[in-house]
Each structure stands twice: as C-alpha cells, then as structure tokens.
C-alpha cells in the first residue's frame, strides 16, 4: 500500500535493513486474515458458481463488497483512530486483501474474450472497476461520517447531562 502507510509498519527508514521491517507478529496477523479471507471467497464461489460464458457475478460481488469494507476500515484506522496495531495487517492486508482478487477478475475477462463474449468481457472490466471505485468512495464517505455522528451524539449527551443542576 503506497498511499496510507501505517505508522507501526513503516516508521523505519530506507537505510535500515529490510529485515528490520518484518515482524513475526504482523506476518502472523496477515497469514491468519489471508486464510480466513481466501476461504470466505472460495466458499462463496462454491455456493454461487457462475457457469462459463456468463457474467462472473460472484467475483464481482466479492470484489465490490471487499472494496467498500476496506475503504470503511482504512478511513477509520488511518483518519479516525490514527493507529491500528494488528487490526490493519489482519483485517485490511490479510482478510480483505485475500477476500478480493485481481487475478480471477483478469482471468474471467480473458476467458469471456476468448469465448467471443466481448460485451460481457467489457462489462466485467468496466463494471467491476466502476462499481469498485463507487464502493470505495462510499466506504470512505461513510467512514468519515461515522465519527462526526458519534461525536454529535456524545456532545448532545454531555450537554443534556450538564443541564442537570
């Protein structure tokens, strides 16, 4: 992730050896999240198989829902809580990173193209891309609203409490 780097992951400078950046605890969190996320995606693919030559709706739904959840989670961790501990490696990098997939998206598109389903191939590329971007934007917007709403509720509660003599 280039954009929002985690303080506890990237505090080291480029002069330090790479191995000093690699922590067993973080790797374990990524691995556990990855195991669960990959299993969840595979389970959904088994439960809702999409036949060849049709729109790969399961992968589409997995990717779009994962994009929404990642944006929601990262905006909370980076902009609201400002530190993440093991939550980011486990839930963002591990679980949601593995739950969503890029290679299957590309492969399904290539298969549709090869099978002469050009419209479906274009729909799969552009549809997933646009829906993913919209889901990310929605996740960011919702994530930024939540602390404002929560703060509002808290301050109202405090104000009400103060009025009691």
């Amino acid at each position: 992730m280039a954009v929002d780097r985690d303080a506890d992951v990237s505090l080291t400078t480029a002069r330090e050896p790479f191995r000093s950046r690699v922590h067993g605890r973080l790797l374990a969190a990524v691995a556990l999240g990855g195991l669960l996320g990959g299993t969840a995606r595979y389970g959904l693919a088994l439960a809702f198989p999409t036949p060849a030559g049709t729109f790969p709706l399961t992968t589409f739904a997995v990717n779009v829902s994962g994009a929404f959840l990642l944006a929601l989670l990262l905006v909370y961790l980076v902009e609201v809580r400002r530190r993440s501990g093991s939550v980011r490696p486990f839930a963002a990098v591990g679980f949601l990173g593995s739950y969503t997939t890029y290679s299957t998206w590309m492969f399904d598109t290539e298969r549709l193209l090869g099978g002469g389903h050009c419209t479906l191939a274009v729909l799969n590329v552009l549809g997933s891309l646009l829906a993913g971007l919209a889901a990310t934007a929605l996740g960011l917007a919702v994530g930024r609203r939540v602390p404002a709403v929560a703060g509002d509720v808290r301050s109202r509660f405090r104000n009400r409490f103060r009025r009691i003599p």
Partner: peptide, 26 residues
C-alpha cells in the same frame, strides 16, 4: 484450485487496487 483460487486469488487484490486509485485521485 488450491494454487489458482487459493494462492493467486489471495496474493492479488482488488480492494487495495480500488482504494489506491481513489486515494491518488483525492
């Protein structure tokens, strides 16, 4: 299935890709 859906599927990621696109734009 194990290598394709398991390893390649989890190694690559869509959610981070989409997030990075939006963050760069922002």
């Amino acid at each position: 299935t194990i290598v394709g859906a398991g390893f390649c599927g989890a190694y690559t990621t869509f959610s981070t890709f989409s997030h990075e696109l939006v963050r760069l734009y922002e």
